Amino acid sequence: MKHWCSAIDVAPGLKEKLTAAGLEAAQLADVKELDPSELLLIYSPPDQLLEQWRTREDTPVQSSDLRQIFQQQLKYTKLGACCAADWRLNYLDTTSLLRLIQRQQPRLELSTPYPEASPIASLVSLQLFKESPDVLENYLNLELHAELFGLQTDSDYIQRLQTRSLTDLLLTDWWQVNAERECSREQADSNLLRMQQIQDDFDRILQEQSGVRSLLQDQNKLSRDLLTHLAKQQLES
């Protein structure tokens, strides 16, 4: 195994461990040029992918993007690529990753928890599955082909999302988004005020420098006048 690939950038800690294990990153668009048997394909549950995309990317993801991502990932897995969920890989240390690369079977504790879905991402995911059921089907198929490290497949995925999309949880999450947006606005206002202060300080320095230049010019003129006066006195004497 020589390369790893993910639809979206993995967590920094996992990236460091993958690099330490000797794997090189590859773009999903370039995977077709690689030998599938030398590839570790990293996928995320749809809700986690949505959440990662929201926090790391400026451009909103479209449902068509998600359909394409899971179609491609399942395709390359069926061609022989080793695949694993990012959250399971996050629990492995570098030594365990090296064992995985060597086609051994590292194992996780059975008590290892599934990633907790945010209420809004859960609701969006459930709606996505209604409109594009193939996304859910492809994700569950990835689970069937994946390295599970001794854990179970995510067969209760829908139930997990449903328990996280209750109204009270959604309201709390929604208000939290508003609070984050308000915090961002306050930060922007603070940055704007700081920039204005910097501009004022800069203008003041320029004015002070202008005053110094004016004083130097006056001193130079006075010196020239004095020298001229002394020269005239010497000529007259």
Score class of each variant (00 low, 15 high):
150 G>V: 04
140 L>W: 03
148 L>G: 07
160 R>C: 08
163 T>I: 08
157 Y>G: 08
30 D>N: 12
208 E>C: 10
173 D>G: 08
73 Q>N: 04
69 I>M: 07
187 Q>K: 13
184 S>G: 05
42 I>Q: 02
223 S>F: 10
69 I>C: 09
60 P>W: 09
73 Q>S: 10
39 L>M: 09
83 C>Q: 05
31 V>Q: 02
54 R>H: 08
155 S>Y: 08
6 S>A: 15
197 Q>H: 12
178 N>K: 15
14 L>F: 07
190 S>T: 11
8 I>W: 02
183 C>L: 15
169 L>T: 00
190 S>M: 14
196 Q>R: 13
99 R>E: 14
196 Q>M: 12
131 E>H: 10
45 P>N: 00
179 A>W: 10
28 L>C: 02
158 I>H: 09
16 E>G: 01
174 W>Q: 14
119 P>Q: 05
156 D>A: 13
201 D>H: 13
131 E>T: 13
40 L>Y: 01
2 K>T: 05
212 V>Q: 15
128 L>D: 07
10 V>K: 03
173 D>P: 04
116 E>F: 01
37 S>D: 11
233 Q>K: 13
6 S>T: 10
191 N>D: 14
151 L>E: 07
52 Q>Y: 07
100 L>R: 01
71 Q>N: 14
76 Y>H: 13
103 R>F: 04
89 L>S: 04
142 L>I: 02
68 Q>P: 00
69 I>K: 07
53 W>R: 06
183 C>N: 14
171 L>N: 11
53 W>I: 02
71 Q>S: 15
38 E>Q: 15
161 L>N: 07
127 Q>V: 02
65 D>K: 10
144 L>V: 04
59 T>M: 10
71 Q>L: 12
181 R>G: 00
201 D>Y: 11
151 L>S: 05
130 K>G: 03
227 L>N: 11
116 E>C: 03
157 Y>I: 09
9 D>W: 04
140 L>K: 09
191 N>W: 05
